[in-house]
Design a protein around this nucleic acid. Structure first.
Lengths: 194, 194
DNA sequence: CTCCAAACGCAAATAATTTGCTTTTAGCGC
DNA sequence: GCGCTAAAAGCAAATTATTTGCGTTTGGAG
């Protein structure tokens, strides 16, 4: 659990190259439009030969997705507000805002555009984990908290769907979504009252 | 409303080229893996020169997205079952199934990977229109029917979110989602009972 | 019918990608 | 430590894709 991924050793050449390439991608992405970023450019910025990148990542999209997934990994747990509802609301609002930004949107698209389904799954897993943390805290306090799937489908899904297909949701609507999943607590899988 | 888009005249050279290229893309996509499809290949299959495609679409992704959007356009209205709930359920189940298929998934990704937001918007618009039709029919029968946005966020969003980021939902879960948006009818924007 | 501009075809020039081979280097047994 | 081995990187040539300049075709308007 302490290691991140890939490289045989943190300080090895392989790891150094990967770090250098990732750094180069982030730098170029910050400096110019994504459409202008090419593998030879990244290679030059990173101080490696293009063929190294081609052999390791195959194509530009894979590399961009790799970098994006890493950037999308949350660097801290969800903030605590005192209640599960407050935690979820605060987290969802921040999540929506981060993902709605230009860079956030691009990262999501990069992740989705990559070949396998591993990238998207990992991103989904990040959100899942954050919500699970909130749910556990709520459970520890003896509160009712909606199912993980209910939150994924009722809050995360609309946020990402609108970003990708329509227009990003505002904070107000996100709040309504959170209210919605709490309104439905216990309605599913609990054969009571319906 | 009778014309489709683009071309000056249905039988003109421009339209002929576009049709030929689109046909070529569909043929190649059916015959081989997407990763192997290149613009020169498409050009050869379509009987045009590559530069024509480059000038018109710019890059492979744009062309693939263009073709995908066209294929994603519904070719008929939602089936009528007698009730708004039944219509929505039937439509959502078919939608989920179509989009979950390998080809559906690929088309969505192609659309999302393209530059502008026009493609995704159009796809969202297709779904919106289908739902609006169902809603109008329900209204004409005097039934209650959820808001368009409630359906988009409560049914379409989870379906697509799971396909893109996790695992496609089964028909059972889709049914639950439809039930969910009907359970919430009138709860939003109508200041009653809460 | 003639003209104009947009779209296409062609081919040369440029850039990206692949590939075979050599060199470096991290991990491993001694 | 000391070599050995295999994975990963560098290098350069070959291949393939993309861009571009220019001449030609063609659809639409006067």
């Amino acid at each position: 659990m302490a290691e991140r991924e890939g490289g045989p050793r943190p300080g090895g050449r392989s790891a150094r190259v990967q770090a250098s390439v990732h750094r180069a991608v982030r730098a170029l992405l910050a400096r110019m439009d994504r459409a202008e970023v090419t593998i030879p450019l990244i290679a030059a910025e990173a101080g490696v030969t293009p063929s190294t990148i081609y052999r390791r990542w195959g194509e530009l999209n894979e590399l961009l997705a790799d970098v994006a997934v890493e950037r999308l990994r949350p660097d801290m747990g969800p903030v605590e507000t005192g209640s599960g509802r407050g935690d979820l609301l605060a987290w969802a609002e921040q999540y929506a805002e981060e993902m709605s930004s230009g860079i956030g949107r691009e990262m999501i698209r990069d992740v989705l555009a990559a070949e396998g389904a591993a990238g998207p799954r990992r991103c989904c897993g990040y959100a899942r984990q954050q919500i699970a943390t909130i749910a556990e805290r709520a459970a520890a306090r003896g509160e009712d908290f909606p199912d993980l799937d209910a939150v994924l489908d009722g809050v995360i899904a609309p946020i990402l769907f609108r970003i990708l297909f329509d227009e990003a949701l505002g904070g107000k609507r996100v709040g309504e979504l959170v209210e919605g999943v709490f309104a439905g607590v216990g309605r599913r899988s609990v054969p009571a009252s319906a």
